[in-house]
Amino acid sequence: MSVQTAAQHEMAQLLVEALNLEDIAAEDIAPDEILFGEGLGLDSIDALEIALAISQKFGVQMQADDAGVRDAFATLASLTDFVQSHKK
């Protein structure tokens, strides 16, 4: 398990807060752990919550037909990279 970068830690905190993942600490989410389905077991309602939190915190609007958004939701690392590269 690799260590979170500062940006990844910030994103992990956002996930834990937005999704009320009270039983999981931000630092416990591995950067390459699969977020949806197996792994953390998130679903489409979570995706909506995450997108809302990201738009409020970083001003980045997620949209499904944007190439890359599907992949962006794969892991903590990919989500962080996506938001960093789209941040205004």
Binding site: L19, N20, L21, E22, D23, I24, G37, E38, G41, L42, D43, I45
Partner: peptide
């Protein structure tokens, strides 16, 4: 993970208990 897998075989993922303590 074992409990999560068990649930996902039978139920829609939205009903996965959260938090699971």
């Amino acid at each position: 993970a074992e409990i999560t897998t068990h649930f996902s075989k039978h139920l829609d993922p939205v009903f996965m208990p959260r938090p699971l303590v």
